[in-house]
Design a protein around this nucleic acid. Sequence first.
DNA 1: CGCATAATGTGTTTATTTTACACATTAAAC
DNA 2: GTTTAATGTGTAAAATAAACACATTATGCG
Lengths: 250, 250
Amino acid sequence: MKIHMAVPKHKNQSANIKTLSVIETEINNINRIALSVDCVIFGFDENKLKVLLIRSDLKKFQGLWSLLGDLVAPDEELDSAANRILKERTGLDDVYLEQVKTFGALNRHPAGRVISVVYYSLINIQHHKLKILDNELHWHDVNDITELAFDHKQILDSSYEQLQRRVQEHPLAFSLLPKKFSLRELQNVYEAILDTKMDRRNFRKKFFAMDFLVDIEQMEQDVPHRPGKLYNFNYNKYEKKKKKWVGIDF
Amino acid sequence: MKIHMAVPKHKNQSANIKTLSVIETEINNINRIALSVDCVIFGFDENKLKVLLIRSDLKKFQGLWSLLGDLVAPDEELDSAANRILKERTGLDDVYLEQVKTFGALNRHPAGRVISVVYYSLINIQHHKLKILDNELHWHDVNDITELAFDHKQILDSSYEQLQRRVQEHPLAFSLLPKKFSLRELQNVYEAILDTKMDRRNFRKKFFAMDFLVDIEQMEQDVPHRPGKLYNFNYNKYEKKKKKWVGIDF
DNA sequence: CGCATAATGTGTTTATTTTACACATTAAAC
DNA sequence: GTTTAATGTGTAAAATAAACACATTATGCG
């Protein structure tokens, strides 16, 4: 159970139905609300879940880190804006990107009313070295972050929770890995995201039973121990078989 | 796996960091984006899941039904706006209210760029007769709805999916019932929301095992059959015991 | 070259959860 | 008082999840 909110005193008129022209007027003259998109870009490296941050350039938040965001152009789709920000910062496209929710507290931005639609994304750090390092752009351990500019800590927490929920029902984790990966690497990703340890044998059993892993008959190279087998994830097979779960499980 | 979007050609400048004053200027002069909140208000009656709709008053959508929404005032919190709309339309406060996501397609509103933050809510129809019936406000069977004004069908679908997911992990269903309810009524709510049939014995076993139901030692009155026992839901106990699930389950 | 090291790869048993399923009981309706 | 229709209850089978140990293989080092 999440939200039981009191009703604001703020307004309590009876339902007033607006005509199109009234709405047009309000849009053009009355409302002064800016729209931005913030991206929570998760990565995975050294067996840890990372998030991409820049140094905030606002005096008010001097020294603090912040998420990647930008205002949305009036003729720009929300998803496009998220993709644009990701592309501008990382050079990446064609990655998993999902809306989390929208943050709109009155005082969240010092410049005025800015509401922010938040997206998260997962990218493979190894395969996409950052090319633009403005504002000290770099990866931070998710679990080391205690404070961020704006309400970005809250945004990060929400996004991380959503990631944790989603990764348990959808094969997101593969976005963080190279196309070929070992089972140990896969398990490391899950352990990092869910912040837990799993039994290796049960983990393998579970994934093999799902039958989405393709044994590509190759072994790891240049690892300082016995090499493991490498696998691909078969997205087509997953799409065909993904389950619809109906149950009650508080 | 949900979204694999191509990057828009639209913009591709390198990351340009904005100063506060540039942002202020953009907010005040450039962006012309209006913000609204739409509420998907679910109810339950005659063993069916219902949603509250009004007749659209826009020519473009003549005859179509639409969700309850309104523009957000510049000095109004998003949650407050959702609560206000609910209160204006139903007279209700202190109900479960949750943000779903934000819809912002360029062409979604004929009056211009309006992005809409969507909330859903669950209310007990029996205990809150509608007082304001402007625009033919009334309850519709969720499963009978095929077309709505704007992108409201898509919004309804998203909200319904979120409701279905959430109700399986949180005790939302009780918002749709009176404080005292029978197990059959509870099961009817779940069957309506999840659009499925469940085994009565297993359902009872499951809920009693959770140990959140309080037997209030009363029986149903005025039912045309053997009366069932009545129960309360113990929210305090739930809050203390609610589980954190870690697993993988595609 | 061989030995120590460290990670891979594999099965079985037990416990828990879920599903399937049938009959006696109670109050209302006639 | 007989019929009706829903409540209330238990058990067995199946599926899923959890716990757990040892042999194998390549590397690294002496």
